[in-house]
Each structure stands twice: as C-alpha cells, then as structure tokens.
C-alpha cells in the first residue's frame, strides 16, 4: 500500500511538473488557461500541496493576479484560495508579499475573483499579518460587500468582519467611511447574476 502510494506520488509530481513546464513554455493563451485551471484544481487536494510548493506554484498564481486576462486572474486567485488553506503555503504567500496583490483583487468585477480573494485574505490572517490584512480600506470594502445583493458575497464579507476584525476596528472603519462609493477599494461592486 505504502509503496503504491509513494510511486503514485512521484508520478503525480512529474505530472505537475509537466503542467508547470507547459505553462511556462506555451504562448497559447487557451492552453495557458487550461493548465492554470488544472493547477488551481490540483491545489484543492491537500495531497498535492507539498509538490505544488516545491514547484513554486504559489508564486505562479501570484503572478497571475496582475494579468489583464480576467480568466488568468480568476484561476490564479482560485488556486491561491485553495493553497492558502495550508499553513506552509500560507507562509510562502505571505513571504512573497501576496497581501497587496490579493487585496487588489477585491476590486475585480468578477464575483468569483472577489470571493476567492476574501477567503484567501482570511486564510492569510496571522498574528503578524493581521494589521496588513485588516487595514482600514479593506475593512471598509468588506462593510460595503456586507450590504451586497449577492448572498455569497454578503455572507463571506460578514464572516471576514466577524472573524478577522475586532469590533473597534470595524467601528473605526465605519466612522471614517466616506459617503458614496468613492473609496479606493471595491469599486464597482461585482456583477455575477445573469438577468
């Protein structure tokens, strides 16, 4: 049993490596998207996390957050959302300066990207990173999200405000919140539903 698993494991590492190589080598955006989605979905399984860490897929995903192609951003953000559940991956993302990159995704128009970003931010919250994760602009953004029409966004922002922020923090953010939507983060509110 254990032998079987270990050979499976090196097979899997090789496969993941092939994916990373294809991603780096290809110029075809469609292929890139597919491989990226593959990698992001592999990130869902804890069994793969060590291999993905070794292949520096965390950095690969982080690179995607600043792409113009929204699919790249969505898949990269989804991958980070999956990987950041693991503590070691979380630390890698923090080391690579991931917080501002993820925070920037809160302003995306795609709801799926925003949702992944919120979950990732929650995963990235540690004693050391908390001040950065819960800076005033982010809290204000979450406050706006918590009034959103979309139940998923509303719920997730609610969890963020309740679990990651202190009450005084939220109160302060509310006080300093400028009227109207002219804040730095989170404009415009994401659209997802099909009329």
């Amino acid at each position: 049993m254990s032998r079987k698993r270990s050979s499976d494991r090196s097979d899997r590492f090789d496969y993941l490596q092939t994916l990373v190589t294809e991603f780096q080598d290809t110029d075809n955006d469609e292929a890139k998207e597919q491989v990226l989605a593959n990698l992001a979905n592999f990130s869902y399984d804890p069994k793969n996390m060590e291999d993905l860490r070794q292949l520096q897929v965390t950095d690969l995903f982080l690179d995607m957050l600043t792409e113009d192609n929204e699919n790249f951003v969505e898949f990269g953000m989804g991958g980070l959302c999956n990987l950041s559940m693991d503590r070691e991956c979380r630390d890698l993302i923090l080391e690579s300066g991931g917080i501002p990159l993820v925070t920037a995704c809160l302003s995306s128009r795609r709801e799926e990207i925003v949702l992944s970003a919120i979950t990732t931010l929650m995963n990235l919250t540690t004693a050391a990173s908390r001040p950065q994760v819960t800076e005033v602009a982010v809290v204000q953004c979450m406050l706006r999200f918590s009034l959103s029409e979309s139940p998923r966004l509303r719920n997730l922002a609610g969890v963020f405000l309740q679990d990651c922020c202190t009450e005084p923090q939220v109160a302060r953010a509310e006080q300093t919140m400028p009227d109207g939507p002219q804040t730095v983060l989170g404009i415009p509110l994401p659209v997802d539903s099909v009329p």
Binding site: E33, G78, L115, T119
Partner: peptide
C-alpha cells in the same frame, strides 16, 4: 496528456463554490 476520461469545462473549484 491532460485530457481526462470525462468531458469537463475549464473551471476552477474552490470551497466558495
């Protein structure tokens, strides 16, 4: 080499979904 047995769309699953 990365075509599985079942036809699937290009989509990323996260816990949010």
């Amino acid at each position: 080499y990365r075509d599985g047995r079942k036809a699937k769309a290009v989509k990323v699953y996260t816990i949010n979904l």
